[in-house]
Structures are given as C-alpha cells and as structure tokens.
Design a protein around this nucleic acid. Sequence first.
DNA 1: ATTATTATTTCGATTAATCTAAATATTTTA
DNA 2: TAAAATATTTAGATTAATCGAAATAATAAT
Lengths: 219, 219
Amino acid sequence: MLSFVEENYLKAIYHLSEAGKRPVNTNALAEEMKTAPASVSDMIKRLSEKRMVDYQKYRGVNISEKGKIKALHVIRQHRIWKVFLVEKLNFQWDQLDEVAEQLEHIKSPLLFQRLDEFLGFPKFDPHGDPIPDENGQLIEKRKDPIAQLPVGTASIVVGVNGSSASFLKYLDKVGISIGTRLQIVDRMEFDGSVDITIDGKKTITISPTVAENILLSEA
Amino acid sequence: MLSFVEENYLKAIYHLSEAGKRPVNTNALAEEMKTAPASVSDMIKRLSEKRMVDYQKYRGVNISEKGKIKALHVIRQHRIWKVFLVEKLNFQWDQLDEVAEQLEHIKSPLLFQRLDEFLGFPKFDPHGDPIPDENGQLIEKRKDPIAQLPVGTASIVVGVNGSSASFLKYLDKVGISIGTRLQIVDRMEFDGSVDITIDGKKTITISPTVAENILLSEA
DNA sequence: ATTATTATTTCGATTAATCTAAATATTTTA
DNA sequence: TAAAATATTTAGATTAATCGAAATAATAAT
Ligand SMILES: [Mn+2]
Ligand SMILES: [Mn+2]
Ligand SMILES: [Mn+2]
Ligand SMILES: [Mn+2]
C-alpha cells in the first residue's frame, strides 16, 4: 500500500515525464513537489525498491508499468472528485485542486465505483482532462486550439490552456465553458483574430491569444 | 493543525469519556485505538502539550474544551459523510465506517459547508446519531428503547443499539429503518414482547430483545 | 502490612518523511 | 581538456508515530 506522499510523487513523475515518455530529473521533481532535492533522492530510492519506478543514479527516474497504473488510478480519483465538486457542490475552478488533492487518496474501491455511477460515468473532468478507466486506460481525444482549426469547424470546448484567473473570468463573461459548442465563422488574416459563434446564438471576435488557448475536440 | 492520528485519538477520548464526563484510562484507549499502551502514553503527552487534553500521569486523561470542540468537529464531518454515503451513494450500514473514518479528516471548511447544504442540512446520521453544528453544539434528542415506552406511543425510529449484521438484516426484512414511524399497540406482560404497527400499515410482534434495541425519538 | 497483580510509564529502537550541509558526479564553458 | 558551474547524492539530524521490554506506580488480595 502506498502512502499519500508516495502517491503524490508518482503522479508528479507521471506528469513531468509526459506519461512516461522521458525521464524526470531530481530538481524538476523537487520543484514540483516543493521539497529539497535531497528528499527527492530519498523518495526515488523508496519508489524504486517498490518497483514503481526505474532508477539509476544521476540518470533521472522513469516510471514503471506498475507505477503508471498506480498514478493513473490516483489521477482517475482526482478527476472524478473534481467532477463531483463542480457538478454537485458548485465549486469554482480555483477551489478545486486543494480539496481534490486530499480526496484522491481515499482508499475505497466501492466509494469510487459508486461515485462514478452517481456522476453518470463522466469521461472528462471540469477542465476537460480525460478520466482514466479502472484499468488505467486513457481515451485521450485530441484537443486542438481554435487557432489551428480551419474556418467552418464546429465543435465542443474540451479544455483550455493555462488557468489564469483573468482568462477564466473572461471565458465566463462571454459564456464559454467546457461543453460549449463553438463554430469558427471567420479568421482575420492580418492578425489571426477569429469570429466564433457560441452555442449557435451570438457571434463574437476573439483575439489570437484566446484562439490559441481554447481547445476544441476533434470530433 | 492536528494530524489524522491525533484527530482519531481525540475522537476516541471524547467517546470513551462520554463527552468528557469521566477520565479515560490508558488501556481503554489502547484497546479502542488498537495500539500498545506505550503508544498511548506517548500520544497523550503530545495532545497534552497541545492543550487538547488535561493529563496527570497515572490519573487518566480528560478532554479539554479545546479538544472537545475539535473532536465534535471531526464527529460532525464523520456523520455528514455517512449521510452522503447512504443517501447519495446507497452504501449499506456495514460499509460506512471504513470510508467515513478516512473522509472525516479532509481539511476544507468549504467542502463541508457545501456538502451539508447539498444534503439538506441533515440533523442526524443514518444511525440516528445527531450531527453537531459548526460550533460543536449537539442538539441531542432523547432516544428511548421501545421496551421502555408505554403502549400507545407513536414515534419515529432514530437509532438502534449495536450494529450486528444479523440484527440490521432483520430490521431490513421487516421494513424498519431510521425515520420509520412506529406505534406501540400492545405489550405481552409475560415476556415483554411488543406488537408494533409499522408506518401505519402492517403490525408485527417483536421480541423483548428487539424492543430493547430499537430507539424512538421522544417527540 | 506485605505481597501479588495490574496498570502505566519510561527506555531504547524502528520506519517514514523531511531538512541542511557536505561530498561527489555530470555537464558546460572556456 | 581542465576548470567552473550545475545537478545529484550522501551524511547526519529531526519529528511523528509506532513498538517490545523493562521499570515503576497503583490497586487488590492475602
Ligand atoms: Mn539518509
Ligand atoms: Mn494529493
Ligand atoms: Mn519515547
Ligand atoms: Mn478517522
């Protein structure tokens, strides 16, 4: 059984390695975990003994298959709780992480089974991030920024890049959130501004920066 | 900030002292916490330094005002989660404690505020135990076993003594749960068996033992 | 009032998680 | 390629939580 701390490390390693694609170095992990590099060295040794990571000193750490499954399990629980907090308890986006970071460590398969059912088996969390299934399978849909899609595209908002308060407030104001249907109606060649229609109702112009940071689903 | 373990100890001290009425001795606490008495001595010292308990060695431990408030806070959270698990996730009684023991330690005033609201500000948990308010106030209603109430009494089931699986299964079978309305229609003098009407529908006879273990509200 | 029994505390260790400072390895730069 | 800079690990402590064994205090029995 992994401790809360070990689970948090695994999750960080998973994310920093981009799902296991590249090794993670000690300082990056120390920064992510807000601990001293020395503490990271210690913890990596522990995780290595538990076969959760592959590790050769000075070479960085790679998550193992076993570790990846565990990490995805925690990520699943994290995201399911987020859905609950937003859908049922009306949490704001910026209040989510602090609580989900705690709730994700609750040990009870039954709880998550029932919670998942209660929420209608959601596939994406409130940020548009996909929820892994019980086996750690991620059905990652491609997400493309508006800026990279052709005029005429009509699709669903599945995520945003970054999460600055001012950007989220802007989205709120113009009426865009996860699940909103957008259509790209025009693109200004001179600066990349885009006209979009929101939910088939009103049409607004968004800046190139905004177009870069709103992600639409491929289908 | 108290650790999970400290919170669990405080709760145990609160319960074993019957809400602070009497001191708790080391062995009783060790048994309750399933630890060695030596560990209890250590922990009591820690809690005493934090002014959560009053302690003189060999004299037992008394919960302090500060400690009582903290304990009631944890108890509140424990019971609110139980309501959630039963009402929203359809947990059985015997599956509750393991999960609630974990969830009760989540640190987030906002979460409990919202959860309380989501559940409609429940006053009692699924076992009929009262939920303390945010200030630790307990509006404890008297609970009387059927065996001690006069014939003619009509009232609501607010709790049961004990929680053996077979007893709970029996209650389930005859259709009695927290909130069920019962009327005492007759009592056999020779053995104390009682005839009760359930929800104004069917009338059944319960044994003296059962009559001793079903608790009705005073009002 | 001793003695025996029981309860409690202290002592000394262990494990998990953390830190600072020092040592060592790797990488970069000149 | 040797020195300088950076990254990482090791060494040695600390704190929380736990334990078994030994010492001590309190209580009960003779
Ligand atoms: Mn070390
Ligand atoms: Mn976490
Ligand atoms: Mn000690
Ligand atoms: Mn607990």
